[in-house]
Amino acid sequence: MNKQPGTLAIGIARGILEIKQFMRQRESVVFTLLFPILLLLIFGAVFKDEIAPGVTFSQYFVAGMIASGLVNTGFQQLAITIPMERDDGTLKRLRGTPAPTASYFIGKIILVFVSMLIQVGLLLAFGVALYGISLPSTPEKWLTFIWVMLLGITSSTILGIAFSVVPKSGRGASAVVSPIVIILQFFSGVFFVFTQLPAWMQNFAAVFPLKWLTQGMRSVFLPDSFAAQEVAQSWEHGRTALILSAWLVAGFLIALKTFRWEKS
């Protein structure tokens, strides 16, 4: 008898299939890939002021949108599509095949990673072309960009998987998940300058990952002098890494205990 295909091989096959399905769903392409660009164009056209010497709001906003991209393609995408797949029988069918459960998640990670690269790439391209954002100028900034992006997308993915048990049905998932993301965007310094928000909003946002992701991305795309404008007068890289990691570990443990393959 031939050898059974391995977990990774099946996972990669699933990743390719997931990307194919993603590209064929008009809603997912429009909402995940085009909507952030649209927001970028609208906000860029409305708010043109400088918020600090040499820093326009558009630039501040691009950094926040890139951080949001990590939440959109990881958390939001998975917390909406996994309940849909639980409803339409995808998950139950997979559980009835020899595919190891890890392969399913490998496929999801590939999908998240590819859609994130596309979204972040598009936002960067528009940011550079239209709003004078510059790509990271030093190796240190590239390094920051990469670790914030990787830690951000990993925790976002894990939290999306963990949150997928909350929506009662696939059809209602979007209505449960999207408002959470939008509120976090308002509170975390995406649509407004974080330091201008009321203190209670800042404190609330500081519990969640998005605030730290936006701050991390600002440390990459805004001049170092802007660090003085942040709440702690610094980029707080250490604290960012700590809080994102804490969410990652908590999300992983919760997902491990609560993940459901079938409708209850």
Binding site: L17, K20, Q21, D88, G89, K92, R93, T97, P98
Partner: peptide
């Protein structure tokens, strides 16, 4: 499971494939 086949009730997955 490599030796077992399962046909479930009413599925609707794979709509885009």
């Amino acid at each position: 499971r490599n030796r077992v086949g399962i046909v479930l009730q009413s599925t609707k997955d794979g709509a885009d494939l």
